[in-house]
């Protein structure tokens, strides 16, 4: 008989291995934050946080580090995207839940899931070759805040629709029969019962979607023109924080590189704050 380890020893070893892996996985977040901070430190320690907020322009090689225009572009684009996607997404969820017949609802749901799975770079490609020329007909150059928002809206719509539908499904089953027993119309049930009950989950889904919108890079980079400026109209080309990192990392060195890490750090904190808010507002969150 081969000599074997006693079960207790084996158990202890396994627990060790598992704990080590878990510690690695959990430590990863810390490692990421530490490395972002480490890379950002050279410029943070010499220039300070204030110039990133106060400087009016972004010329890191000349010593001005104003992130404001890009931050404004990021926020404006995400907000606009939410403005487009939230009503449409909720409407789509209502459609699948209350209006469509079984197979139609399934078809639409399948389309939403498929849409959620389309890579952002493909959406960017489509936006640039199809959407941008259309906007260009309205007002040149076409690559603009608007184009970015529309493509972003397409990206986050599934998140909102799926979250909302999950929330509606979990609330409506019981209310539906009760409310229809009272003789309420379908619309009355939606407005008076279903939506108010699902409100928190929908809010969570929207917050989560805005976090994703703020963090999105490729699609936005490809369609929004990438001019560093404070947007003054929907048709202005703008550059978001994420696009800026993607565009300049390739050649940045020294302080310039460090200042890109500063913007990355800022972006992370912003996105994590939104995600935390989504978590707090509770509700069932469907990861699309």
């Amino acid at each position: 008989m081969v000599k074997t380890l006693s079960p207790n020893v084996r158990d202890r070893r396994l627990l060790w291995t598992l704990s080590l892996s878990a510690a690695t996985a959990a430590g990863l977040l810390l490692l990421i934050l530490i490395f972002l901070a480490k890379e950002a430190w050279p410029v943070l320690s010499t220039v300070g946080v204030t110039s990133f907020v106060m400087d009016s322009s972004w010329h890191p090689l000349e010593g001005t580090f104003g992130l404001t225009p890009m931050l404004a572009a990021s926020v404006a684009m995400s907000a606009l995207a939410i403005l487009i996607a939230a009503p449409l997404g909720v409407a789509l969820a209502l459609f699948c839940r209350f209006y469509a017949m079984g197979p139609v609802a399934r078809l639409f749901r399948w389309a939403v899931v498929l849409l959620a799975g389309i890579p952002s770079v493909v959406l960017g490609l489509w936006g640039l070759t199809t959407l941008v020329p259309l906007i260009n007909d309205l007002r040149a150059p076409g690559t603009s805040l608007l184009a970015g928002s529309v493509v972003l809206a397409l990206m986050i719509l599934p998140t909102i629709a799926l979250t909302t539908e999950a929330a509606l499904t979990s609330v409506s089953q019981s209310y539906w029969t009760g409310a229809s027993a009272l003789g309420l119309s379908r619309e009355a049930i939606i407005l008076a019962v279903a939506l108010p009950t699902a409100r928190n989950s929908i809010a969570a889904g929207v917050l989560l979607a805005s976090a994703r919108a703020l963090g999105e890079t490729m699609a936005v980079l490809m369609v929004s023109g990438n001019v560093v400026q404070l947007p003054s109209s929907l048709f202005d080309p703008v550059r978001t924080l994420t696009a800026n990192i993607a565009l300049e990392m390739a050649y940045a060195t020294g302080t310039h590189r460090a200042s890109l890490f500063v913007s990355g750090l800022a972006l992370t904190l912003l996105v994590l704050a939104l995600a935390a808010a989504a978590r707090r507002s509770g509700g069932q969150v469907v990861h699309a």
Binding site: L29, E39, I245, A246, F261, G264, V271
Partner: peptide, 27 residues
């Protein structure tokens, strides 16, 4: 401790991919 691991993973899931790119490049 285990709940801490779970929380840290949820946070990690929210980090934008471009930031993973920055980290991957630096690390």
């Amino acid at each position: 401790k285990v709940r801490g691991v779970g929380l840290s993973l949820d946070v990690l899931a929210g980090v934008p991919s471009i930031v993973f790119g920055l980290f991957g490049n630096a690390f």
